[in-house]
Design a protein around this nucleic acid. Sequence first.
RNA 1: GGCGCGUUCGUCUAGUGGCUUAGGACGCUGCCCUCUCAAGGCAGAGAUCACCGGUUCGAAUCCGGUACGCGCUACCA
Length: 486
Amino acid sequence: MISEHPRVRFAPSPTGYLHVGGLRTALYNYLFAKNQNGKFILRIEDTDRNRYVEGAVENLINVLKWIGLDYDEGPQKEGQYGPYMQSERLDIYKKYAEELVEKGHAYYCFCTPERLTELKEDQKAKGLQPKYDKHCMSLSKDEVKKNLDSGMPSVVRLNVPSDVKVSFDDIVRGRVEFDSNGIDDQVLIKSDGYPTYHMANVIDDHFMKITHVIRGEEWLSSTPKHVLLYDAFGWEKPQFAHLPLLLNPDRSKLSKRQGDVAVEDYRAKGYLKEALLNFVALLGWNAGDDVEFYYLDEMVRKFSLERVNKSGAVFDLAKLNWLNAEHLRKMPDQDLLNHLKEELSNSRFKDHAFSDEYLLMVIIAMKERVSFVKEYLEKSPYFFEKPESYEENAVKKSWKENTPELLSKLVEAFERLNHPTKEDYEAVLHKTAEELQVGNAKLIHPVRLAVSGLSAGPGLFDILYILGKEETVQRLKTAVEKIKIQ
RNA sequence: GGCGCGUUCGUCUAGUGGCUUAGGACGCUGCCCUCUCAAGGCAGAGAUCACCGGUUCGAAUCCGGUACGCGCUACCA
């Protein structure tokens, strides 16, 4: 049954943005496809005209592109099984709905919404489960034709057989069995002519030759309907794999109310695509070893559906943050440089020019101290502008009465230096401290404060070297004038 | 309510009958390194494996029940 080259699909509905749960589903589909040398297809399930959102499809594609999950077939990348927008396949659904009606596996229903609600309320009042009563199934062929010809609103319903056990083998959950009596006569074609998810899904998966349906757990209870549909058509069923849900910290289904759910939100906050992908992959899957840091290609190599977990996973920001920092630290300096330049061009420093050489030095100095690219600017603004103020507590702690005098001596010594290296700065500072008969710390901390305005940062001599002699001296002089002991 | 799925440190998880005094990671605490802050190293706290019963010489691992959580129960996906 498992064909040599699997075909899987990510089939989102364009509701405006890509949900992180959707991202995880897309990722697993992608990983499985690439691991198995198969195809990853993008299909847009836009069968609900009421929920249509302008630009949602383009947005979805852009986000997928940004994060690096390239699809082999889909909108803007037509393959031989298109179109990949369900709204462009209406005639196909209609044709197969008619075939089902022909075979007696489906029937036209002309019941009004009013009757349906009434029926439902009636059943609820009697403690029965709400289910369509197959009322329209008793209509004769002529009556159906007459209604249809007269333009009466109609839907097509699946004729669910009673007293049948519907089961399938889920790759992550094992054998799952349902009783057909609990399944409603699902609407297949809506009165506006559009198919419902169930209908479109089964037909498309069949004609697009999908071998594995990998989707969220919320679809598990709908699967028997799909199985019934495959059987009604006499089609071979794909393999199913239902993924565990992503959860809020309180273990409810991940929702907007309790934080960000859109991939775009995380992107805007400065999360790296590498970190996002890595993090989301680990929410429900592991290779069985201790590896937690992954790049996409390594995940592809090690991924298998058999190792996907059954239970929901809480979306834990703290771990995402750690992974982001980890990916940032391990990123090649050249890539980091591009990120930093982009960050700078969107900041208040956008009009300043910094050489690549200079920025690279900043990157090396700050690399281990940042979790986000923007922190290069937030945590060490002094590399991009002169300190505007001096950290108050640090002033209190390290700026003593004799500090201005000590620093003046140090400045003199620095000024005599010719193209100093960081070792030169260090040697001179040590020597000056010795001459002035004070500990190194008496100079180091005030210098750090004078030059950066802050008390935390990279090694002082690295900072001085990056800033350069002229800038260092200038900042020291300014600080001596501006900082007063309180 | 009905049906289905799930339940190992706060969180993500390893574990598929003896190797387990249940391992790793994030987070947290402490120590080391050190001019500061990080990173790194080391150490620590943290899980009676939801509960009850059964099978077995032996169970987190197999079986049954209960509880709790979640999903579905639309002419939404």
